[in-house]
Design a protein around this nucleic acid. Structure first.
Lengths: 143, 143
DNA sequence: ACTAATAATGACATTTTTTCTCCTTTTTGT
DNA sequence: ACAAAAAGGAGAAAAAATGTCATTATTAGT
């Protein structure tokens, strides 16, 4: 699947979904943004598109995009639900406690060993995991 | 530091904190409970102690206990903030997506290697991390 | 045991995030 | 252009969390 906005839009339309200005803008925002955004962030960013949709609409749209597997939810330890574009591969986040910047990383061995150990020892079938690192980014470290 | 309620209570009192029925009960609930509890859960459980404190009080009490390092916050991917007793050592959670049971585990190598790699490659000083596994527990797997 | 100091609580309002319902508007295939 | 269906808007409200200020309870000191 392509990452480009118009390709995604076309695919949605082909499957019978309607493309509205809000849908297109929310998609564009989440495709361009590197860090996960809260619903409130998205509402704020939509003003740059001259759009001021009702919050109900935005939540509904985010649910829709999750359902279509175009985005996914992420939760950091402040408890706020954020949204980021769905990408194949498995990423974790580096969250700077100082400037709040969020970077993504993909771990090499990716906890496969740990998951297998858990499944064997605890008889717990791991479906997914979340792993986030909190610390201080290089810029903030210099100060 | 002891884990027993009365010892903790004595230590709090020695440091000039007052021991109220609510404080004692919240502590007792969180010491006895194995899984993290949301503020609402705690309010519900306090009724068993014939206590119906105002929610403000409960949130404030939880903040107090965090400040004293007796409990800590945990966030799972539903975004709700939960509280669990603070324990030395570093634990992760196994959260059953079916029955919602929560188990704790302590990983052997505990991501030390990954953290060092991140610090070297990304120049990001890792202060802490959160790692939770979502899946199906042994009981639910049998069904 | 009494009292003063102060920590803790309660009441109430408010903020923030999220969800629900019902009705209207927009998009799209024909 | 029109009809069907999807999407959006408005308002209320739930749920979680926070802030303020007056009142109550705990504790140390007498």
């Amino acid at each position: 699947m392509s990452n480009k906005l118009e390709d995604i839009v076309d695919q949605l339309r082909e499957k019978g979904n309607k493309i509205t200005s809000i849908r297109r803008a929310v998609l564009e925002i989440l495709i361009k943004e590197t860090k996960p955004l809260a619903a409130g962030d998205i509402i704020a960013l939509l003003k740059r598109y001259q759009l001021e949709p009702h919050k109900t609409t935005v939540y509904r749209e985010l649910d829709f995009l999750i359902d279509k597997q175009l985005i996914r939810e992420v939760v950091f330890d402040d408890g706020q639900i954020r949204y980021e574009k769905f990408e194949p591969g498995h990423f974790h986040h580096l969250i700077c406690l100082s400037c709040k910047k969020v970077d993504k990383i993909e771990l090499s061995d990716d906890l496969d060993k740990e998951e297998k150990t858990i499944e064997r020892k605890m008889r717990f079938k791991v479906k997914r995991h979340s792993l986030e690192f909190y610390g201080v980014c290089s810029k903030c470290n210099k100060r």
